[in-house]
Computed example of a mutant assay.
Amino acid sequence: MDKTQSRLRRARQTHIKISRLQIARLAVHRTNQHIYAQVFSPCGTKVVAGASTVESEARRQLDGKSGKGGNIAAAQLIGKRVAEKAKAAGIEFVAFDRSGFRYHGRVKALADAAREAGLKF
Rank of each mutant, 00 (worst) to 15 (best):
D2Y: 01
K3T: 04
Q5C: 03
Q5D: 03
S6C: 08
S6D: 06
A11D: 02
A11W: 02
R12Y: 00
R12C: 00
Q13C: 06
Q13Y: 02
Q13K: 08
T14H: 09
I16E: 10
K17G: 14
I18E: 09
I18P: 08
I18R: 10
R20G: 11
R20F: 14
L21H: 12
Q22H: 13
Q22Y: 10
A24I: 01
L26I: 06
L26M: 11
V28H: 02
H29S: 08
R30C: 09
N32P: 11
N32G: 14
Q33P: 13
H34Q: 08
I35F: 04
V39R: 05
F40D: 10
F40G: 02
P42S: 04
C43S: 14
C43E: 11
T45I: 15
V47T: 07
V47M: 11
V48E: 12
G50M: 13
A51Q: 03
V54H: 00
S56A: 13
S56W: 08
E57R: 15
E57K: 14
R59C: 05
Q61K: 15
K65L: 12
G67C: 05
G69I: 05
G69D: 01
N71A: 09
N71G: 08
N71V: 06
A73I: 08
A75H: 06
I78P: 03
I78M: 07
G79P: 04
K80P: 04
R81P: 07
K85C: 02
A86S: 06
K87F: 05
K87D: 00
K87E: 01
G90I: 09
I91R: 12
E92R: 11
F93N: 13
V94E: 03
V94L: 09
F96G: 12
R98E: 06
R98A: 09
S99F: 08
F101W: 14
H104K: 15
G105Y: 04
R106P: 12
A109C: 07
A109E: 08
L110A: 09
A113K: 07
A114V: 00
A114N: 00
R115G: 10
G118L: 01
K120N: 15
K120R: 15
K120T: 12
K120D: 15
F121K: 15
F121P: 15
